[in-house]
Amino acid sequence: MGGDFTYQDASMWYKNLDKLIEYANLKSAKDGLNVKLFYSTPTCYLKSVRDANPELPIKQDDFFPYASDSTAYWTGYFTSRPTTKYFEREGNNYLQMVKQLQVLAGLEEHNKFVLNELKSAMGVMQHHDAITGTEKQHVTHDYERLLNQAIDDALLIARQAFK
């Protein structure tokens, strides 16, 4: 369906998905297959899996390192870039604190942009490359720059709350 940077235009993706779903359902009905595609949610999917009561194997060995091809190995998900991982945790702590201060000080209508900037930076830090530390160094610097700027800007809310 795409890669890291191919989901910028959601309406285009949904239009294409609609076409795929419609085609697959027509083909299934025509060929007598017992398949019906539809949009769903993780909760709906998990309920269906639970209802089917499948016998699932338990994996006992390690998943890592992972090889995406014969010359590309992925390791260090839990150990690489510990400073960035710490910064992400501290950023989330700061976000939660600022959200609480904003409510307690009655500033909910003020500085929405500033709080959204910090929420957005925290969202970026949850990207699968950011949180695992598999991104390139210049990308790490950019993630950290975004989060640092958002935290600095959110100081405004903390300052207003303590006035």
Rank of each mutant, 00 (worst) to 15 (best):
G2E: 03
G3T: 05
F5K: 13
Y14T: 07
Y14N: 03
K15H: 05
K15Q: 11
K15R: 13
D18R: 06
L20D: 08
L20F: 07
I21E: 06
E22I: 04
Y23A: 13
N25T: 11
L26G: 04
K27V: 15
K30L: 10
D31T: 09
L33A: 09
L33E: 11
V35S: 01
L37T: 02
F38A: 14
Y45D: 01
L46I: 07
K47A: 10
S48P: 02
R50D: 14
P54C: 06
P54A: 01
E55A: 05
E55R: 06
P57D: 06
I58S: 03
D62E: 08
F64S: 00
Y66S: 01
Y66T: 03
A67Q: 04
D69Q: 01
S70I: 02
S70A: 08
W74A: 00
T75W: 12
G76K: 02
S80D: 15
S80R: 15
R81G: 00
P82L: 06
P82I: 02
T83Q: 13
R89L: 11
N93I: 07
Y94D: 02
Y94E: 08
L95I: 05
M97Y: 14
V98E: 08
Q100Y: 12
L101T: 07
Q102R: 15
Q102D: 08
A105G: 11
H110F: 12
K112F: 01
V114F: 06
L115W: 05
K119C: 14
S120C: 13
A121W: 03
G123M: 07
V124L: 14
M125T: 07
Q126T: 14
Q126E: 15
H127M: 13
H128T: 05
A130N: 08
A130T: 05
A130M: 07
T132N: 07
T132W: 00
E135H: 03
H138L: 05
V139L: 10
V139Q: 10
Y143P: 00
R145W: 06
R145S: 02
L146W: 03
L146N: 12
L147F: 03
L147E: 00
N148V: 00
N148R: 13
A150P: 09
D152E: 14
L155P: 02
A158I: 13
A158L: 13
R159F: 12
